[in-house]
Simulated scan of single mutants.
Amino acid sequence: MTDWLAPLLIGALTQSPRPAAAAEPKETSMSDQPPTQTPTQQLAAALTAASTAVAKLMQTLQLSLGALREEGFTALMVGTVQDQDPDVLVPSFPNEPKTGADLIWIDKASGGKKLFLIQAKRLNPLTLQYDELDHTVGSTGKLQVDLLLETTAGIDEEAQDEGGFAKAYYFFYNFNPLSSADNGIFWLPADVVKTLVSQGKTSLAALKKSSFYQPLSAFANEVGLG
């Protein structure tokens, strides 16, 4: 197991689940009970709540978005998902300059064998560009997206030996003052981002033209909980 990854997995997967609050028993009829959701639908609802929370905060901060970088929005997203649907996607926060990832989400049911490496970018509401989509890492001159994909490929090779996988994504935190439909969190596979960056495409409009560009709720299908 990769030296830096093993401690993250051990810490994340041994976290004790939060105890559920005791509920007062009450009589219910069949008509009172909500329809049963699949795990994927439950996660999609949690991801929708997280996207809404980020959109509201970005709108509140629209005149001073520089006061909060991607890390703050990532923390809000992760916290909201954990609150809505705990112990499904377990978060770990790797060394970004070393891995290219802001966040690793681990499918707890897989025992750490299914991992989602995520790099986050924030939309500039004035230019509607992702200013750092073509970011290079330190003095290496290596594109961040290349580093993320290389890291993921190394982990994926190990994970596949145990029946799992590792995949890389970009999450986009949006506030568009011209269109509320763009607000919230959207995502793309990292290899699609690599192609766009190689073509010099870093705008919201360019990313939206990709058929892979989707709202955060659709990420539940990528996790594949059933």
Rank of each mutant, 00 (worst) to 15 (best):
D3T: 07
P7D: 05
L8G: 11
L9K: 01
P19Y: 04
A20T: 04
A21T: 10
A23M: 15
E24P: 00
P25K: 13
P35Y: 07
Q41T: 05
A45R: 13
L47V: 09
T48F: 06
T48S: 10
A49S: 06
K56G: 02
K56E: 14
M58G: 11
Q59T: 15
T60M: 15
L63W: 10
G66D: 12
E70L: 01
T74H: 00
L76P: 02
V78W: 04
Q84H: 07
P86Y: 12
P91T: 04
P94R: 02
P94M: 04
E96R: 12
I106S: 04
D107K: 15
A109G: 15
S110V: 14
L117N: 06
A120E: 07
R122S: 06
P125T: 15
T127H: 13
L128P: 06
Q129V: 12
Y130H: 05
E132M: 03
L133R: 08
T136E: 12
V137S: 01
T140Y: 01
G141F: 10
G141E: 07
L143A: 15
L143W: 03
Q144D: 00
L149N: 05
G154D: 07
I155A: 01
D156K: 02
D161P: 03
D161N: 06
G163Y: 07
G164C: 08
A166P: 11
Y169K: 03
Y169M: 13
F171G: 02
F172Y: 09
N176Q: 02
N176P: 09
A181N: 11
D182H: 05
W187N: 00
P189H: 09
A190M: 02
T195L: 08
L196S: 02
Q199Y: 05
T202I: 08
K209L: 12
S211V: 01
P215E: 08
L216F: 12
S217L: 08
A218R: 12
F219S: 08
V223Y: 08
L225P: 01
